[in-house]
Computed example of a mutant assay.
Amino acid sequence: MNVIKRNDVLFPSLMNEIFKPDWFGGLENMRTNVPAVNIKENEKDFELELSVPGRSKDDFSIEIDDNVLTVSAEVKTENDVEKDNYTRREFGFSSFTRSFTLPKSVDSNKISANYENGILKFTLPKKEEALPKPKRTIELS
C-alpha cells in the first residue's frame, strides 16, 4: 500500500483505497450477469442450455433474426418496509442479453425452448440435408 505521511500521521493513498477489490462490495458485484452456457451437438440436433436460476418464463425474451438467436431477460425487484418512524425502500435490477450465431445446418423454423429448474434449454434441429446419411453401396456400371 502506498502511504502518504503528513504531520506524523499515516494516511492511505486515496487511489489505493478506490481501486481495492472490495471497494464496491467486491469484484463479485462488478461482474456482469451473463449466464453460463453449455452447447452439445448430437446427430440430429444441437442442444443449448443456459443457467438462469430464479427467473420465470415471463422474464425471457427470445428472438431469431438473420440466423442469430438472442436471449435476454430483465428482472426488477422492489422491497418497501415501513415502520414507526422510518421507511426503507430497496430495489434491484438485473438483466442480460446473450446472442448465438446459428450454424447454417440449423432449421431455425423448428427450434424449441423449455425452462425448467433454472435451466433454459433450446433444441436446435438440423436441416434434413445436414443429417448424417446411412451407408450405401454404389454399383459400378
Rank of each mutant, 00 (worst) to 15 (best):
L27N: 09
R89E: 04
P35G: 05
F24A: 10
K40H: 06
W23V: 10
N33K: 08
V34W: 01
V71E: 06
K44G: 13
S61P: 03
N67S: 13
A36K: 05
F19I: 05
F91I: 02
V34S: 09
V75G: 00
K57G: 08
R89M: 07
S56L: 05
E41K: 13
T77Q: 11
T77V: 13
V68I: 15
R55I: 03
E90T: 11
E49K: 14
N33S: 09
S95L: 04
L14S: 07
L69I: 10
T87W: 05
I62S: 04
W23P: 00
W23Y: 14
M15V: 03
D22G: 03
V71Q: 04
F91L: 02
T32A: 13
E41Y: 06
D59S: 10
E49A: 15
K40V: 15
I18C: 01
P21W: 05
S61R: 09
T70D: 03
S95G: 15
E49D: 15
T87L: 07
F24I: 08
I39F: 10
N33M: 07
E41V: 02
P21M: 03
E78A: 12
V34T: 11
N67Q: 13
K44I: 14
K76R: 09
S56A: 14
L27T: 05
N67I: 01
M15S: 10
E17Y: 10
F93D: 01
F91D: 07
P21E: 11
D22V: 06
D84W: 01
K40S: 08
E28V: 06
L48F: 06
F93P: 00
E17A: 14
L48H: 01
K20R: 15
N67F: 07
A36V: 08
E28I: 08
L14N: 13
L27R: 12
N85E: 06
K76A: 11
S56M: 05
R89I: 13
E43G: 10
D65E: 10
T70F: 00
G25Y: 09
F91N: 06
N79S: 15
Y86K: 01
E43F: 08
Y86S: 10
G92R: 09
S51T: 14
L50E: 00
D58I: 04
V52Q: 02
V71T: 12
K83A: 12
M15Y: 10
D22W: 02
D45H: 12
P21I: 01
I64R: 10
N42E: 15
V68Y: 04
V75F: 05
V37S: 12
E78K: 13
N29W: 06
E43P: 12
Y86G: 00
E43Q: 15
G26T: 03
L48S: 01
S95H: 12
I62D: 08
D66L: 00
E41I: 04
E78V: 04
S94N: 10
P35M: 11
I39Y: 02
G26C: 03
F24H: 04
N16H: 06
G92L: 12
D22P: 00
F24R: 12
V37M: 05
G25W: 06
Y86I: 09
V34G: 11
R31Y: 00
P35E: 07
T32E: 14
D84A: 09
F60C: 09
N29V: 04
D65G: 01
S56T: 15
V68F: 00
T77G: 09
R55G: 02
N16C: 11
L69Y: 02
F93N: 11
F24L: 14
D59K: 11
N67G: 06
G25N: 05
E74I: 01
